[in-house]
Amino acid sequence: MNLTNCPCGSGTAFNQCCQPYHLKVKAAPTAEALMRSRYSAFVVADADYLYETTHISKRKNHSKSAYLNSAKNTRWLKLEIVFSDFDIVEFKAYYLSKKFQTEVLHEKSNFRLADGKWYYVDGEFYE
């Protein structure tokens, strides 16, 4: 997929921002960078990356096919980082509903650093 601006909202070109993480050229250096790259992976429907960046203890709850289905059936609009700390990222991900209304997924996500790589563990959703 040829994207000019990275879907994560960094203002940087996709090939200079999240794509190198997706291609395993480099690893996301922070929990926030991983969060942004996972959002971009949803936008470009990269289920392999989503699965591989989910902590191994949680993978049984997240199959590649489920990630792919979610990514392909959602029209993501933008990502907003509300708060970011060492291993916690609170974000709002805006998407278009089936009724063509803008909806918001608001989550506080937990990440874990293991063997020099960041992984998504789980999250708490807000109304």
Rank of each mutant, 00 (worst) to 15 (best):
Q19K: 15
T53V: 07
A47G: 03
E32K: 14
N2P: 02
K24Q: 12
M1H: 14
A47C: 06
V25L: 11
S37P: 13
F83Y: 15
A13W: 00
K58H: 14
N73P: 11
Y95E: 12
I56K: 15
R38A: 00
E90T: 04
S70N: 10
S97C: 03
N69E: 11
N61A: 09
E107N: 12
N15K: 09
Y119H: 13
Y120T: 00
H55I: 05
Q101T: 06
I56A: 07
N5Q: 15
F83V: 08
S70V: 03
D87H: 06
D87E: 09
E80M: 06
A47N: 06
F42H: 12
A31T: 05
F14E: 04
L96C: 02
S57N: 10
W118E: 03
K72P: 11
T30D: 02
F14R: 14
E124I: 10
S10F: 10
E52H: 08
H62A: 10
H55E: 01
Y126F: 14
G123L: 13
E90L: 05
Y21R: 14
F111E: 01
Y51A: 03
Y67Q: 12
A31H: 09
T30Y: 02
V82S: 06
N15T: 00
I88R: 15
L68H: 14
P7Y: 04
D46L: 02
V43A: 03
I56N: 03
L105K: 14
H106D: 00
S63Y: 13
M35T: 08
S70I: 08
L23A: 13
Q19E: 03
T4G: 00
T53K: 15
T30N: 07
K26V: 02
A114T: 03
K117G: 00
H55S: 04
L96H: 05
V89A: 07
K99H: 05
K99A: 00
V44L: 04
D122K: 13
A93V: 07
Q101C: 01
I56T: 06
T74V: 08
Y49D: 08
V25P: 03
V104Q: 10
S84M: 10
S37C: 04
H55L: 04
S40H: 09
H55V: 00
I56D: 05
T30F: 06
L79Y: 13
A71V: 11
A41Y: 04
M1Q: 12
K117E: 02
F100W: 05
Q16D: 05
K24G: 00
C6L: 13
K78F: 07
V43H: 05
Y67S: 13
K98G: 01
V104S: 10
T12K: 15
R59W: 04
E90M: 06
A71T: 04
D85W: 14
K24H: 04
C17F: 06
Y39D: 00
